[in-house]
Amino acid sequence: MSRLAGLFAELAQKNRKALIPFVTAGDPNPEFTVPLMHAMVGAGVDIIELGVPFSDPMADGPVIQRASERALAHHQSLRTTLAIAKEFRKTNGHTPIVIMGYLNPVEIMGYEKFADAVQAAGVDGVLTVDLPPEEAEECAELLKARDVDPIFLLAPNSTPERVRIMDAIGSGYIYYVSLKGVTGAGHLNSAEVETKLAEIRANTKLPLAVGFGVKDAETAKIIGNLGDGVVVGSALIKEIEANLHNPAQAKTAIIELLTSMRQAMDN
């Protein structure tokens, strides 16, 4: 059983929802990320999504774009992201790590080398934003053979047919994007999310992590009541951006926000 499958089974027993922070690896500097990851675990997060910096993040809003640009300015890449994961694993053997990025760095590295490197780094899941299931077969098989879960996105406008496709090829969990648009956009409509999640559950037994539009304890609680996990990204990165000259302050603010989310979700 993969670390992600084990985690969701354990959470289901405890009737607890996964809190899943997303941060871009190496933002605002390469030394910031590993200590932040450990601190986030201390604040009660269950899975960590690490964004791989990419020059052309087409599906991301301005906040995550700028995070990528800051990391790239420090020459961060897929390789350094995996190094960050590996470093974290030295002292944490239980918290699943999912890397989330775009396909070109993977293509340039080569699928097999990538799958080996991901496994060696102790990464548990891979979400490649611009790799839909139709094109993903080869990469997904290589990952699964190494106990790494290929994770796919579903959107508000995804058809039941597409849910079945994701169910067949994906594992670990499904990332449900609760809003049309890019990351960091818009307002959440919880009734719509509820209806859609019920529709999706009719076609898959995979856990559903819900993201896009989670910005505070209140929205985290609402989403926690609907899905199996809550993804929060832009709201955390905004704290980094607001404290560029004081990364320690950014870390404190991120931990405070996650702590408040954890409490709201558990009560």
Binding site: S77, Y102, N104
Partner: peptide, 21 residues
Amino acid sequence: GRPGVLHGNRTYLMSDDDGEI
């Protein structure tokens, strides 16, 4: 250049060893 994926298709691209454009 070399083959890679950008803007929805696989094709020849100008990208570095890390896959950045």
